[in-house]
Amino acid sequence: MAKILICDDSRTSRKILRGILENAGFEVVGEATNGEEGYQLYKELRPDAITLDITMPVLDGIEALKKIMAEFKDAKAIMVTAAGQKTKMVEAVKAGASEFIPKPFEEEKLIEIVKRVVQ
C-alpha cells in the first residue's frame, strides 16, 4: 500500500483528498498545512509520494518542492493546482514535480495520476 503525505493549507481540500485516496487503497500517513510543515513531515515520514498545494502560506508548494528535491532526489511530488497557474506549473516542472492534480478534484483522474506516480 503506497504511503502518501498530503500538504495543503485548506482543511476542506485535505479532507476530500484523504477520502479519495483512502477509498482507493492508499495510506495517508500525514497531513501538513503549509510548505514548511510539509518538508519537515516528508523528512520524518518518507512517504512514497507527497501532494503539494501550490498556493500556501509560510512556504508555498514550489518552495517546499525545491527544499524536498534538494535533499531527496528521488522524491515524488504531485502538485495540486487550481486552474490559471500555468507559470507556477512550469516552475514546478523545472523544480522536479512528477505530476499535477487539478482542483476541484475529479476522483477518477486523481486516482489514476497518483497510481501512475507511485508505481
Binding site: T12, S13, P57, A83, K86
Partner: peptide
C-alpha cells in the same frame, strides 16, 4: 475554509480566462 476553496477554484478559472488575453494574475493564499 470550504468557501475559500470554492473561491480559489473560481479565481483560478478566472486567471485562466484572463490569460487568454495575455493578462496575468496570480492567487494569494485565502
Amino acid at each position: 475554509d470550504s468557501v475559500c476553496e470554492f473561491l480559489n477554484c473560481n479565481n483560478g478559472l478566472f486567471a485562466t480566462k484572463l490569460s487568454e488575453t495575455d493578462v496575468d494574475i496570480d492567487m494569494e493564499p485565502p
